[in-house]
Nucleic acid binder design. Sequence first.
DNA 1: TATAAACCCTATCGGATTAGTAGGTTATTA
DNA 2: TAATAACCTACTAATCCGATAGGGTTTATA
Lengths: 144, 144
Amino acid sequence: MLSKKTKYGIKALAFIASREDKKPVQTSEIAKSENISLKFLESILLSLRKSGFLGSKKGKGGGYYLIQEPEKIKMTSVVRVLEGPIAMVPCVSLNYYEKCDDCPDEATCSVHALMIQVRDSTLNVLGGNTLYDLARVKKKAQSD
Amino acid sequence: MLSKKTKYGIKALAFIASREDKKPVQTSEIAKSENISLKFLESILLSLRKSGFLGSKKGKGGGYYLIQEPEKIKMTSVVRVLEGPIAMVPCVSLNYYEKCDDCPDEATCSVHALMIQVRDSTLNVLGGNTLYDLARVKKKAQSD
DNA sequence: TATAAACCCTATCGGATTAGTAGGTTATTA
DNA sequence: TAATAACCTACTAATCCGATAGGGTTTATA
């Protein structure tokens, strides 16, 4: 299950990316438009800034803006920062590997083999989508 | 993240499926071999019996056995029973659908479109694997 | 230079879930 | 009838999640 943090974070990034201009977007505007608790969203955007996805501008007229082009931001990296491992089991995670307490040998583990397949197919999907793609879906739907 | 319940359940099913004979397998044997807490495993096997995957026999020489052929048991159904929804977000779940509180319209939701892709690719993998496949991995690895 | 806008930071908290533990009951078979 | 093994109920410790509270700091602009 995707946490709300991740879900809201993705929505917020897509919201910012779907803007034509490059002016900073206020947290309050995103919160209102996407029905997200303001305070909760604040903490999410903060962590997205700290992990290098967003820049910020303080004071009146400030807000958050994308640092990179939307086409360059793969959903794999977004999910990893917000949610953590993409794999469903730590022992098949590329970026957050952890050995299982049970399992003397991973080659003997039936779950391991299966979850590697799941991981790879998920990586394919997330790696094949960028923020640009998400923003396009959003804009397209709105213009209908 | 896969819960331990699901992980252990899959392991146990693969263990039973990898047996040559069709004699009942004791919970204690599985627990010892797979390093699972006996009591926890008991509750897992019980729920697998109640959902129609396993049969049981009480008393001496009793235990659990598969009701269907391993080739007929897709991992999609196993995961659904043990873990619940396969989708990462309830609003794209086929079997456990639930509308999001936020999201006035799913067509406008950037997360929705992405998670449908993830769901479908995961379904492909889990639907393409049966208990027979998992048991084969296990037996192959053990004979090496 | 005062004020309002907006980001920034820390702490806390209730509720839900998870992974187990404990202890007893029932059915089967040798 | 004694041993075995599934079955059932209840409890618990720990963790995490989603949010809330309550401020502090910085900056633009009138």
